[in-house]
Nucleic acid binder design. Sequence first.
DNA 1: ATCGGCATTGCAAACGATTGTAGTGCTGCT
DNA 2: AGCAGCACTACAATCGTTTGCAATGCCGAT
Lengths: 348, 348
Amino acid sequence: MTETSNDKPAREGSKPRIRNIAELARMAGVSAGTVSRALAGKSLVNAETRERIQAIAREHGFRPNQMARRLRTQQTGVIGVVIPLGHERRQHISDPFFMTLFGHLADALTESGHDLMLSRVIPGDDEWLDRIVDSGMLDGALVIGQSNQMDAIEKVAERYLPMVVWGSHREGQIHCTVGTDNRLGGHLAAQRLLDQGKRRLVFFGDTGAPEIADRLAGARDAVAACADAPEMRACSTHLSNDEIPEQVAGHLDELGNCIDGIVCASDVIAMTTLRLLHERGVRVPQDVAVTGFDDVPIATQTVPRLTTVRQDIAGGARAMVDLLTQRIAGVETPSTIMAPELVVRESA
Amino acid sequence: MTETSNDKPAREGSKPRIRNIAELARMAGVSAGTVSRALAGKSLVNAETRERIQAIAREHGFRPNQMARRLRTQQTGVIGVVIPLGHERRQHISDPFFMTLFGHLADALTESGHDLMLSRVIPGDDEWLDRIVDSGMLDGALVIGQSNQMDAIEKVAERYLPMVVWGSHREGQIHCTVGTDNRLGGHLAAQRLLDQGKRRLVFFGDTGAPEIADRLAGARDAVAACADAPEMRACSTHLSNDEIPEQVAGHLDELGNCIDGIVCASDVIAMTTLRLLHERGVRVPQDVAVTGFDDVPIATQTVPRLTTVRQDIAGGARAMVDLLTQRIAGVETPSTIMAPELVVRESA
DNA sequence: ATCGGCATTGCAAACGATTGTAGTGCTGCT
DNA sequence: AGCAGCACTACAATCGTTTGCAATGCCGAT
């Protein structure tokens, strides 16, 4: 009775809030169904009536309850974006590559009228992905990176069509992927070093993830095809920001100056490598040449500027959303493999 | 009639899917209400019955429809994270600072059992935020950055309690913010340069956003308190990755060597500045010292390593989620201002 | 005058869960 | 034997939309 907010409905131009379609229908002197149609802009309702209803809605700032609409129509307009953190403990999400891809996905989804729900999961059991796709909140799912969760992803793909995964496509694999030809990418990077006369190469990266393993394989292809290069060594280096510096430092100390070229599995690893080499007084690329992978925006701002293998992240994001849209419509799409491109700057 | 999937229900170990609670109830020989309670683990239902129901649900991989649940309970468990791109046209989302904050928000929200829905909006009209909070899908909203949208945010805050914003707190402001004392931060950065004997300072940043304006004001405070330093100059520099390099290059060319210290409004701007100075043969910090702002993870990997003003991003994210939780419960929380911290590395 | 056809609008049944209330059967006490 | 009390479960209303179908009123044509 003494509340301050009840008496003057017309204060500040914002009328008392309308709770639901029925209330608005009563105000407009029509039925709820008509209001629903009017708000949806359907042509079945008289233009004049429609205008009037829309005017009232606008005036009161009314918007129909999405939850009810989605329950009724059985579609949510929400796409789940999932980042599985299988092989990395911490902070994976701030990885520039994931973030760049994520940003482009957000763009593409927004553009196609979808909402985006983020699930950042640390796979504990083998049900994590099932839980997400069965939540009943999603029209489809995009998985960023296979991590070491191929089995869980494959299991869901057997029964759940609207899912697209960023990563590698393996022979006989059911789930639909979008990704770069990582093997070719690794080949390009190593070949660049070989072309520059480097012969004692090493690979920095965690081969637990299939993408990375492919990059190493590609680099080894190039080395194997070279007559006078010794076999390529691989040093495990995780992708998480926290661990890279000490791991790379350890590798560099251990390797000493018996190397003259480094193929890094990502630009982030390469950035740290560049800094540590600089601090050790090693000249890049004269003493040791370094290549990255991804070509994230920040890679253009390193000292020296990073030579890297470019993935078309924006194009990949668009492809993922396209394929997903098709799959939501019931089409069983094939995987997409994009060509990598060597971007030569200064570090190699 | 000739469908391939109907005859053998027990193929591959995964039983035919249960569509809803009623179906499961029929299978278990109980009513829907009981199933609902059993699945929720309530104690009102017989332990044995509960076990049996849960077993059936597990076996068939059944999970209750979230949309229906949320419609009925009138709460969604979803928090909207909004990134307004008012003063930047493109690609803002891949900004390392936003991404780091976003990652920590994702952590904190996941931990508190919330889902996260991302809305990346380019404010076209003055209703964009209204549309989001009125969508009926959200328990609350977190806004990352005020951009130049103070008015729109303030308007919504008048009537919508569960919203917390990352940014600056202004006198008399209604909406609840979490942020760093940007003025103090700017002061710390400039003071560091002054302490190193630098006198001809310049500020790189876009003062259209209130946070950045505060940083410049703080830097000017420090300069004004110094007897022999001329007034500080400010060069507008946008935050988007695409534009930074050419803008900074333009500033450096224009300024020539009449400066010896640069206060950058963000680490990203600082990174580009470092690279461009290096390419021009300018030594950092001997000839020109450079400070950043934010202390994003990548800032530790620059050459030379970046001296910067640290924001406690992880703590800020936790604070935002804490405050939002309180506001969802109806508590009118005050803003939180965190202390910045100067992190001295090599660039200044 | 009657009726077919058209443009609108109202009615009511879904969608799938949650939850207050009422009902059931059983135990144990008097 | 009768009944209160207990533990459990069924019933049915509810959340707020959407949408197929029926109903209405009005037009011109026969």
